[in-house]
Design a binder for these strands. Structure first.
Lengths: 136, 136
DNA sequence: TAACTTACTTGCAAAATGCAAGTGATTTTA
DNA sequence: TAAAATCACTTGCATTTTGCAAGTAAGTTA
């Protein structure tokens, strides 16, 4: 399953071939918000991803080293998902998406607005700090 | 056709509902590279989008005010597509995608590499200049 | 040890994608 | 000026992906 075929040499196209669908960036968003998530955590997100789609996306993201699986310290039945450095480095993209959305959508949740206010004060500083927090 | 349903209040999710598929950002990339394109120009791009998919994506992007149609000055048979300000403002996202891709993909075309070198010297300045050029 | 939770998988219907072949309006060519 | 070519699409149909609901197997709790 899921062997990605390269459509061109364009870096944008190759990026989209990995995470350019309606779900992958939401999984990545969840991991940026929470640092680590179980399978069930992803299912609880407001967009209500179907469980088979979630499984397939997690597999593609793991195969492409965007996320990694870790043992749960409290239970063998649970799995922890976390971003790799490659995945963490998608943060600037997510930030720019949020900034664009804030400019053009009328409704933005208050907590996002507050976070974006922080981001805009010092974008590079915010990213540096966030990367450090996500990276173990 | 194409009435988009909101999956949640998340700005990322709402953005993906408009342009979060494997093709839309490539159309937008083409418009950022060329400033204006005809229908045929999009078809010539290396990823070879199918003509029916192109038509459907252009419609969604136009409905969501990301692009606009203009008359071709030389021919009534041709149509010119251009980014709106809302579409032009996706540039920072495209730039961050390119930066991420450059870091993690082994092959990047030379012209992109050169452009990214420019970007990195002064990101805000580059964006300001590019926005001005794209905005008529 | 039985019920429950966890991370998935399976089967199937519905929707989206991809391909090839139109179509109708304009524009060029003979 | 009539025929051929070009342009921006549309249509029909096969393939692939998505989405929903119902499993399942391993591990945990009562």
């Amino acid at each position: 399953m899921n062997k990605i075929k390269k459509r061109s040499d364009c870096p944008v196209s190759n990026s989209l071939d990995i995470w350019g669908d309606k779900w992958s960036l939401l999984i990545i968003r969840d991991l940026m918000d929470a640092r680590e998530c179980t399978y069930g955590d992803f299912l609880k997100s407001p967009e209500r991803i179907a469980t088979n789609i979630l499984a397939s996306r997690l597999q593609v993201l793991e195969e492409n080293k965007i996320i990694q699986k870790l043992e749960h310290p409290e239970s063998k039945a649970k799995v922890l998902y976390r971003l790799t450095r490659k995945g963490i480095d998608l943060l600037p993209i997510l930030i720019e998406i949020n900034i664009w959305a804030e400019k053009y959508f009328s409704f933005i949740p208050e907590d996002r607005k507050a976070l974006l206010k922080e981001v805009k004060k010092d974008k590079a500083g915010f990213i540096k700090k966030a990367v450090k927090e996500l990276e173990n």
